[in-house]
Design a protein around this nucleic acid. Sequence first.
DNA 1: CGCGATGTTGAACATCTTCAAACGGTGTGG
DNA 2: CCACACCGTTTGAAGATGTTCAACATCGCG
Lengths: 239, 239
Amino acid sequence: MDAQRIKVACSSCNLRELCLPMGLSAEEMGQLDTLISSRKRVKRGEALFSVGDRFTSLYAVRSGFFKTCVTTADGRDQVTGFQMAGEIIGLDGIVSDHHACDAVALEDAEVCVMPFNQVEELSRQFTPLQHHVHRIMSREIVRDHSVMLLLGSMRAEERLAAFLLNLVQRLQARGFSPSEFNLRMTREEIGSYLGMKLETVSRTFSKFVDDGIIDVKQRYVHIKDTEALRRIVNPQTCS
Amino acid sequence: MDAQRIKVACSSCNLRELCLPMGLSAEEMGQLDTLISSRKRVKRGEALFSVGDRFTSLYAVRSGFFKTCVTTADGRDQVTGFQMAGEIIGLDGIVSDHHACDAVALEDAEVCVMPFNQVEELSRQFTPLQHHVHRIMSREIVRDHSVMLLLGSMRAEERLAAFLLNLVQRLQARGFSPSEFNLRMTREEIGSYLGMKLETVSRTFSKFVDDGIIDVKQRYVHIKDTEALRRIVNPQTCS
DNA sequence: CGCGATGTTGAACATCTTCAAACGGTGTGG
DNA sequence: CCACACCGTTTGAAGATGTTCAACATCGCG
């Protein structure tokens, strides 16, 4: 609602190595600078978009943290992902011109607005961008498949271990510590994402603490033994 | 391996209303005829591609039935989807130039091979195709999210009911009966897709039979009460 | 400081899985 | 053509896992 007409350029963004322009050369990146017309701030708890909203743009997270979730007719909902800086939100809306999920900020956030018709237009003129857009969508598909694997064939401890490893790996790619961080989501949201109840999430955290694998204090998590988490996710493979 | 140099044209394909050219005009469709260079036959049980194979092409199912699945390091696997005539396989390979899942034919099948660099080239020249490719990828993402919802927050009966309704809806779109069909996959494959053990799948089928909702004889399924299935998926909403 | 939201823990319970046995259809070889 | 073996399926009973309900603790915010 409060889209801002700020001079914004991918080529000078400190997220450029993680975000849409990832892998593009400096000159190629310059081509993208026309794409981001505005930024938008989203307060904690507010929706960037909701189910049924008309789809117009993709969004790149500049700062803050989002969840996306879908809802059943009878009110149960499922968190389908958590998005942090440099990640793209909104791909669900392309197929029907309307969003198929809610995107909610878990903390005050800012996104770059990329009008999708401009993305498509620029993609036609600019081959590297075209391929990039395809890769981003494909990456989301591959990610979704690995979540299905998690939901379909892992038990609670494996799910939480996989979740923590994934989170820490993404945080590390953004220059944060590979061993400690603060969760931005509640136990309930973690549970929704992992297909378990909040109590089970809490119990599993406690078990990891008892086993000396992590320290937890509310949202703060310190991973003391990353290898142990890896062994939990891959029972056989890791020695 | 046995790609065939057959004269093939989307514009004269009887699947054109379901497949890639869906929604394009007759002239627009003509543009696509250069895209399909060959077809490929895949025998029951054979892989169209496997994890790690170099990605070159997307595939449109012309006949037959496929499953796609991912595998954990320790050998557990998860069926991520079942694909029937008109559906597109291979989008997982774009992101890394290598396939991230296996695609296996559940019955003798034939696919149209669409070299992806040609898809991209044609997409740049031909706006409706570009948008279409985006829509197909977005549709897969939305589908994956609904599977996550199923895996994350439904119980066994709801999962199987949702599965049957989805299957019958897609079969109906292809001109088959909305009430009876033959499953192409085993109980184990259904279970893998739905995140339950084959015994649970079997028991749940038996329960539906006891409740008079369906008839089952091995792979044959007759849906006697579609509304009852809908009520199972949406406990509250349906009266 | 107090309230509401979030997180933890225990005990009873529901659901699904595991293990085991038996059945049924299909295909092969004698 | 039949016997047999094999794969897939069904069903039962015991057990594991996660859920539900409830009580309590803790944190953050006004």
